[in-house]
Design a protein around this nucleic acid. Sequence first.
RNA 1: CGGGGCGUAGCUCAGCCUGGUAGAGCGCCCGCUUUGGGAGCGGGAGGUCGUGGGUUCAGAUCCCGCCGCCCCGACCA
Length: 560
Amino acid sequence: MVTRQSQLFIPTLRADPADAEAVSHKLLVRGGYIRQVSAGVWTFLPLGWRVHQKVVQIIREEMNAIGGQEMLMPVLTPFELWQQSGRDYIAEIFRLQDRNGREYVLPMTHEETVTFHAKEIASYRQLPQILYHFSIKERDEPRSRGGLLRLREFIMKDAYSFDRDEAGLDESFRKNERAYHNMLERLEIEFHYVDAESGMMGGKESKDFLAPAASGENTLVTCEQCDYAADLEIATGIPRSPDFPASLDRPEDVETPGVTTIEALADFLRVDAAATSKAMPVVKPDGTLVLGLVRGDDRLEEAKMATALGSDFRPATDDEIREAFGADGGSLGPVGFSGEIVADETLHDGQFVAGANRTGWHLKGVQAGRDFEPRFADLRQPREGDRCPRCGGALHFQTAIEIGHIFKFGARYSEPFGATFLDEDGKEKPLVGGSYGIGPARVMAAVVEQHHDERGIVWPSSIAPYEIHVLALHGGSEEVLAIAEAVADDFSGTGRDVLLDDRDERPGEKFADADLIGAPLRVTVGRKSLEDDSVDLRTRAAAEDDRVGVRDVPKWVSER
RNA sequence: CGGGGCGUAGCUCAGCCUGGUAGAGCGCCCGCUUUGGGAGCGGGAGGUCGUGGGUUCAGAUCCCGCCGCCCCGACCA
């Protein structure tokens, strides 16, 4: 069936929408793929939904190929399930009540629900299992953004594996890992498979699939020499060594009036900023104040700090700082502080300048282990100029979109839910699980970010809404239109998705819309070439016409 | 939640500072001409100026509240 553009709802826009920033946001809106309903809430128009469905189908095929079983779990979920898992505190979950006051959540993930069902697995003979579904997720995002990049409502494929032990989980994990690699290759996404934070999901092995893109929200760290790759939040880098001044036998006071920043301090004392330390007082949820210490030229990575503390934290307020240190922020240091101190590894050796806990004063020659006793942890955020922790090569930083996340959650959910099975040895054991998510909408955004030019989208044929776009430049000629229809029919007879632009519009407009919509192949049927019994063919990527005899069109197309 | 910006026709915007009967371009409808990179001419439709209140003879314009959207930060599979 040839689809006639004259009858479709494809509202293309000549100008960029005023509120768009990201390329994928602009092009998907301009191309008539998506429209916004409210912040982070979008409609997929017919064209957008076709792409979404194609992405879904590829994901589905790869999940089925590893033995995944598709099902569908509800969006509306009793709040008790989330209380049972202990995730009821999460601020991002939407909550609501029915008319009788019964409480529900609109969840952003389905570990609770799937584990509720997994309670029916009674024997090791029924394991392993891989269950998945595509369903609508809701997240009360404090801040959605960028078209499809960060949504409050979206469809996600989430899969869950259940195994009898860690070894089994590992095998299931590898299967899903492989499925993800296969699907992303078919989607023609450039991606990196990296170590990641498991975040609020709670898990052990945690991996991200990051697609480099200008408007990504994650930062991907890669090595220019070896295959080291990690999300910035957990990446490690080796910084340059500081240029230390002469060592001192004991810390020495130095007056630093009005000096509150590291740059000013380094400048004032004429020392390398890397030979100073920076104090970050934070407060844990239980109210304990902990001092984080990093090198003066480094930034504290908050995800790492949270890992080191084993809990959330917030920056201490000015009042808390004054009470605990007797000094203002800007003059804080570890010497004399009685609470817990967590110091970055870079402070292990050498003597650093530190705040003196006396406003307007610093200490020179402060040495860990001699002048204060910290716990060491990796706290610093890597940055440009660092070397690779594996091979010493240069590290490269780029923004990226997190399109998939897979992680092991072990017995995190099966224990509170009592989802146990009887093992071969006659013992009752909790199911060992893993979770595997990917968002088709983010995939679409990532593909557009990676495949576009100044005129529009350049879809890979695997997910293009239509593979072939036939433009009829009939200009009132029934004859030209008839030939265009015949050409379109031929393609569609070979099982291709064909869009025929039979609209009564001028050529320029058809070309512009075709470029914007981005079908991989374009056939232009017009008087000009028909004089030689030919049509003009081009790939969207190359954007240059080949004049081909009407009879040779199928051959030309099959060669692309 | 903190900071910044914006809200006027379907879209992109001007008008607001300095109050006086709401505009442009594109799009849309009709007619004629035109037809290989967003055409030309003629005619036409379309707006509670986000919303509520206040000041004023008079408010898109000034003042106050609220709502919505975007960006940065916080936060975040």
